[in-house]
């Protein structure tokens, strides 16, 4: 019975295999770093294990004191999503800051007649 996989399991596993292949192709092309490729591979492999052997989640869940494996996956997803949203916000904020700096630099470059009528200001200081 264990060897009888549902079609959805096979389909999802195939998708994950493709993801794994693409990840390493990109790593070879130096689009992502090797460390990142390893991390992503880990994600794909864990996902494949969860899909093919759903009981493993129950095993880990029991270790952590959570009743069902499905619940554990859900809890973990919420935590991961929160983290990602936070990361997104901070990186967005960094981008906004950079954008403001560029826009400001551009605006100040167009500043007309610098120190026009009072050059003595710099001499006295």
């Amino acid at each position: 019975m264990r060897n009888k996989f549902m079609p959805i399991q096979i389909l999802l596993t195939l998708v994950l295999l493709i993801a794994l292949a693409v990840t390493w192709k990109r790593a070879k092309e130096n689009v992502i770093r090797k460390r990142e490729a390893f991390l992503w591979s880990l994600v794909w492999i864990i996902a494949a294990v969860v899909i093919l052997l759903p009981e493993t989640t129950s095993f880990v869940a029991n270790l952590l004191g959570v009743g069902r494996g499905v619940d554990l996956v859900l809890y973990a997803s919420v935590v991961v999503l929160f983290f990602l949203v936070f990361k997104l916000f901070t990186s967005l904020d960094r981008l906004e800051k950079l954008l403001t700096d560029i826009v400001r630099k551009d605006a100040l470059r167009d500043l007309p007649e610098k120190d026009d009528e009072q050059p003595n200001n710099q001499i006295t200081e």
Partner: peptide, 25 residues
């Protein structure tokens, strides 16, 4: 007049203006 090419908000504009004023002595 100094002009932001894209809208950056009141605080950003104030800062740009303040820097311009410093530049202008």
């Amino acid at each position: 007049v100094v002009r932001h090419r894209i809208n950056r908000g009141q605080g950003a504009a104030l800062k740009t203006g303040t820097m311009a004023a410093l530049d202008l002595g």
